[in-house]
Design a protein around this nucleic acid. Structure first.
Lengths: 217, 217
DNA sequence: GTCATCATGTAAGCCGTTACATGATTGC
DNA sequence: GCAATCATGTAACGGCTTACATGATGAC
């Protein structure tokens, strides 16, 4: 899970640990603030596996290494201008290796963990790296899971031994699952019709972003 | 977390482990299928602490001990009728103790873990055991958390470096959080005005169950 | 008589957390 | 100079999972 997230971010640009954490938090918006106690060991593990490598400070046109903060950015600029290029040796910038890309793809497509509902959001965030049919399969698998879950939750709703609060919870849960399904339907529709099916009856239509946007902006 | 759930269920009726698992799954609808590897050790721990006690098979008007299944139910009935009351000694039925009730209350109100967002749903399910003001505080704390989270996710939405899929994820996440907030507003409104505030301007109004029900049944 | 389900438990391991330890850089 | 932030790491622990082991009961 964490490995997948790290590799996904490194796919776009070289980054150091601290910055990876920042992006995990506010770019992906998932896994709110992963702890360093997980992050650094994970990076070390990935480096040992040869999936990433720490690049030297002076190295190459480092694509997209951002500073930790705006002030840091400015400070670095100032430093560069005044020719006092402080090495900032403490920082270890990682770059993904070809082997790491392979691993990323494997993790992203992995059929064994592929049904793990907890990783779905993360996988979908990186879905542009998937082949159209694999991506579609991911969406539909998830949809199937949610449909099943919905019927479970609905049957819980039917119970009469629930008090107001327990009932409020299960009903809201059901509503949430229903919303997720509607959202997935939108996404699936936007994927276009699958290859081997005749493109008749465009089920959902235009609802992709409407599902994501409608509830009170 | 698990302890709280167990004690909450035992608050209503004596139960054995297997049955607790079932209820966790389809009555509460949370923590889909807790594993036995967590459940039984948890029960043992609670018994060691004196929070629950295993009641003897022949004991008292055991309130609400249900069989594992309908067929089991019928089988037991048949057994009783034919006077062949098989002890089913394997089953250990647990009953909550006064000490257990105390523990339950403590866990439910606990201000230290009280802000843990992961336990909110569970707490709310048992909210009828809370005093009105404590309950209200629980709801409002949660609301505050979600408002903050919403603004975080919204700011992520504002980024322009997100591809279609990452964007779809963050936008849908935002929508989900917004829905949760609206739902909480409904619940809070239904709690009635707080004691020391003048009951003017009934902010939300009638939306409690509408938030839970609206998205396509 | 055998298979599914009910029922309880143990052992190993995974994946994350908190808490601790360290140190450079920068703003005021 | 001192606090805040950036930056990297280690150690201990927590809570839950999977896999394993065991056995009773009931359906067919």
């Amino acid at each position: 899970m964490l490995d997948l997230a790290i590799l996904g971010l490194l796919q776009e640009s070289d980054l150091h640990g601290y910055e990876i954490r920042r992006r995990l938090r506010d770019s992906l918006g998932l896994m709110a603030n992963i702890s360093f106690g997980s992050l650094y060991p994970a990076l070390a593990r990935l480096e040992a596996q040869g999936a990433v490598s720490a690049i030297e400070p002076g190295m190459a046109p480092v694509t997209g290494v951002a500073m930790g903060s705006l002030s840091g950015e400015l400070a670095a600029l100032r430093a560069r201008r005044s020719k006092v290029v402080v090495a900032k040796k403490a920082r270890k910038v990682y770059r993904i290796t070809p082997l790491g890309r392979e691993l990323f793809t494997r993790l992203l497509e992995d059929p064994s963990a592929g049904d793990d509902p907890r990783t779905f959001t993360l996988r979908l965030s990186f879905a542009r790296h998937l082949a159209p049919d694999v991506r579609r399969a991911l969406l539909e698998r998830r949809r199937a899971q949610l449909v099943e879950r919905l019927s479970e939750v609905r049957s819980a709703t039917a119970r009469n031994d629930l008090d107001v609060y327990a009932r409020a919870v299960v009903e809201h849960t059901a509503a949430g699952v229903a919303l997720d399904i509607a959202w997935l339907d939108g996404l699936i529709a936007h994927e276009g019709a699958p290859q081997h099916t005749s493109p008749q009856s465009p089920t959902a239509g235009d609802t992709m972003s409407s599902a994501s946007t409608s509830p009170q902006g």
